[in-house]
Amino acid sequence: MVQKSRNGGVYPGPSGEKKLKVGFVGLDPGAPDSTRDGALLIAGSEAPKRGSILSKPRAGGAGAGKPPKRNAFYRKLQNFLYNVLERPRGWAFIYHAYVFLLVFSCLVLSVFSTIKEYEKSSEGALYILEIVTIVVFGVEYFVRIWAAGCCCRYRGWRGRLKFARKPFCVIDIMVLIASIAVLAAGSQGNVFATSALRSLRFLQILRMIRMDRRGGTWKLLGSVVYAHSKELVTAWYIGFLCLILASFLVYLAEKGENDHFDTYADALWWGLITLTTIGYGDKYPQTWNGRLLAATFTLIGVSFFALPAGILGSGFALKVQEQHRQKHFEKRRNPAAGLIQSAWRFYATNLSRTDLHSTWQYYERTVTVPMYSSQTQTYGASRLIPPLNQLELLRNLKSKSGLAFRKDPPPEPSPSKGSPCRGPLCGCCPGRSSQKVSLKDRVFSSPRGVAAKGKGSPQAQTVRRSPSADQSLEDSPSKVPKSWSFGDRSRARQAFRIKGAASRQNSEEASL
């Protein structure tokens, strides 16, 4: 019999049943779409005989028809080659250093092939080196495509196609095609072959870009420019304004007297070369007005044109410092986490200390709560409330009815002989401070409620009492009544008793 458990639990079988086999339907690529829901599959020993999904071999995947050992070796080799080519560490840098020397040698020989004295001697060596480079780069490109299958997102032919569309893979295939075209054109020995050789060798310069396949330098440059984009835009904007204004004023001053400034384009060329401190010297002002304007705008514009270099330099320094700090933080993070875990385990398992309490023990206690009866409008029989619902239920009951529930009420002091009981919340009678006064009792026990209740009776009109401690106690149990005489010590004692009862009640409510 096959059962599914969608909550991750395992159904224990009877003692008479045989052992169960467990598997996940959602992990089987050969299962139909209706059953690939991630549910837990529990099947008996007879299920494989019936041809269940556990008995079927995997229909898809890279190692579907391969033995386990061969499949493990296949995956291990794939991961190894992918890490060597895409994430070089340790001795893997030897291969990348060899590729760099190969590319650099091709670049140097290409430069010498353009010089007439070394053209014949360098062409033969360059031809052999180009063949070696094409073979190495071609094999490396196909190995990269194959090894990318170790990543989940690059599996299958669609994943390989996605990997081949990456920018550096596109550069690799462009350089490979250009190198093959250069060799094919150079072997023909005609004029067209020579011109094609010179034009296609430009694409071989892109080999130097592939040295940084992970794009660390470009990411660093982009992060620095993005972090200081506002400062760079401000400096370039002001420098551009200085360039336009200086070129226009010098053009007006030199026009008609200097042949170097016949057009405004000549003035812009002079301004750009001057403000960037290049100074070719092919154009320069000759009149005193033009020289004065050139000197003034040079002092202003050079500072703004040189400002981005300082901004980028400081940004690079701060970014490198931040990377070093992050690297040290990552080195200290795992030991710190292990130290915290060890300290907590020692703290939680220390049996010699009796003052340690688990944080979840508070929620494991069961509280007896009286249940409210809507018919009699009273609190009758009580029941046990689950631990997770205790706090919310108690808050709702307290807010609606005004009752305070507590588990172990402390012993109440008995009323003394000299001070009789003053009210239901005086704190001297046991069992009276455990409940709050309802809204109805407060209204009818207050002086205003009594006056409103007995407004029509003649006794209420004739008998008038001065405010005393009895009425103030019933009005607000948490307030201290004001004494009408300064020498009345009994009223002071009563006030301290009320304060103590109120503080105890607040602490009990907070504990609930």
Rank of each mutant, 00 (worst) to 15 (best):
Y237C: 13
A193D: 00
A265P: 09
T276I: 07
L388F: 02
G159R: 04
M211V: 02
Y127C: 13
L318V: 01
D355E: 03
E231G: 14
P285L: 12
S113F: 15
K230M: 08
C169F: 01
V175L: 00
T263A: 06
H260Y: 04
L356V: 02
F329S: 11
P386S: 03
G271V: 08
I311N: 02
A294G: 05
L243V: 08
N350H: 06
G281R: 14
I238L: 05
T234P: 04
I273M: 09
R332G: 11
L312S: 01
T114I: 05
E231Q: 10
R291S: 09
A193V: 10
Q204R: 12
Y284C: 00
A196V: 09
S352P: 00
F304C: 15
L339Q: 04
H228Q: 00
K331T: 11
R214Q: 06
E119G: 05
A267T: 13
D259Y: 00
M1K: 02
G290S: 15
G215R: 10
A306V: 07
L268P: 07
K319R: 12
R207Q: 11
F104S: 05
L203P: 15
V225I: 03
S199R: 01
C242G: 10
M1V: 01
D282V: 15
A306P: 01
L292P: 06
T263I: 09
P420L: 02
S314P: 05
P335L: 04
T296P: 12
S195P: 00
L197P: 13
G281W: 10
T287N: 11
K219N: 10
G271R: 15
A337T: 04
P335S: 06
P285H: 13
L200P: 08
A337G: 08
I278T: 06
R198Q: 00
P285S: 15
R325G: 12
A185T: 04
L243F: 03
R210C: 02
L351F: 03
D212A: 14
F261C: 01
F305L: 14
A265V: 08
R207W: 14
S247P: 06
L356R: 09
G9D: 02
W269L: 13
T359K: 12
H96P: 09
V225D: 13
P411L: 01
T114A: 02
L351V: 07
S358F: 01
K230Q: 04
I340M: 04
R213W: 11
T217P: 11
W344R: 09
G301D: 09
L101H: 07
T359A: 10
L206P: 07
G313E: 00
F304S: 13
R353H: 03
G418V: 04
I278N: 15
G279D: 14
N258S: 08
V250A: 10
W360C: 10
T194I: 13
I340T: 07
A178V: 11
T274M: 13
G239R: 03
L268F: 00
L339R: 05
D266E: 14
H260P: 08
A147P: 07
E254D: 10
G281E: 12
G279C: 15
I205V: 11
A253S: 06
S223P: 14
Y280C: 09
F248S: 06
R210P: 13
R214P: 14
S55C: 00
S122L: 09
F261I: 01
M211R: 12
G222D: 13
S342L: 08
H228Y: 05
A265T: 12
G290V: 15
N350I: 07
L307P: 02
R210H: 12
I278F: 11
L107F: 03
D212G: 07
A294V: 08
H328N: 14
Q204H: 09
K162R: 01
D212V: 14
A62V: 03
A253T: 07
D266G: 09
A337V: 04
A185G: 03
R214W: 06
N350K: 03
H96N: 02
Q188K: 01
R144G: 04
V225F: 05
G159E: 08
M1T: 02
W269C: 13
N258Y: 11
G215E: 10
A235V: 15
S247W: 14
D172G: 07
E322G: 11
I209T: 12
T217N: 12
P335A: 14
D282N: 15
T277S: 06
A306T: 00
T378I: 04
Y154D: 00
R213Q: 12
K283R: 02
L206R: 13
K255R: 03
Q341H: 15
R333W: 10
L81P: 06
N190H: 08
Y280H: 13
T276N: 01
V250G: 11
G189V: 03
Y264N: 14
V320I: 11
Y284D: 11
D259G: 05
V182M: 07
L293P: 06
N79K: 08
A343S: 06
R353G: 07
D259N: 10
A309V: 04
G301S: 04
R144Q: 01
T217I: 09
R201H: 00
S247L: 12
L85R: 05
L221R: 12
K283E: 02
G256R: 08
G159V: 02
I273N: 09
S195C: 05
V250L: 03
E130K: 14
Y362C: 07
N190S: 10
R333Q: 03
Q341R: 15
A317T: 00
E231D: 05
M208V: 10
G315R: 06
D212E: 08
D355V: 04
T349I: 05
L249P: 12
G290D: 15
G8S: 01
P430S: 05
